[in-house]
């Protein structure tokens, strides 16, 4: 399950920002250098795929790839 979600995140981040080479500990801001615009684009891609609305307050708690995986499992966003 985690591997499948990791692959999905990697695909979305790559498609939206062009960034590659993610690992579980990758920090979106510190390691990939993403800014707010990039993050919001990724959020929109997730929302479009899962047909959900992710609250802004949740978005800024998700620093690393593994945080997003945990969040997706918790929210039932696992049909990738």
């Amino acid at each position: 399950m985690e591997e499948k979600l990791f692959q999905f995140i990697q695909d979305v981040v790559g498609r939206v920002t062009g960034k590659k080479g993610l690992v579980y500990d990758t920090d979106f801001v510190k390691d990939l250098g993403l800014n707010s615009f990039d993050i919001m684009n990724i959020v929109c891609a997730f929302e479009d795929h899962f047909d959900v609305e992710i609250p802004n307050r949740d978005v800024w708690q998700l620093h690393q790839v593994k945080d997003v995986i945990d969040y997706m499992i918790k929210q039932g966003m696992t049909e990738v």
Binding site: S36, P55, N56, V59, W60
Partner: peptide
């Protein structure tokens, strides 16, 4: 919008 939330120091939050 980004310059405004950086001015206020609130960042992007629930009131964005």
């Amino acid at each position: 919008r980004e310059s405004y939330v950086k001015y206020t120091g609130k960042g992007i939050d629930a009131s964005f």
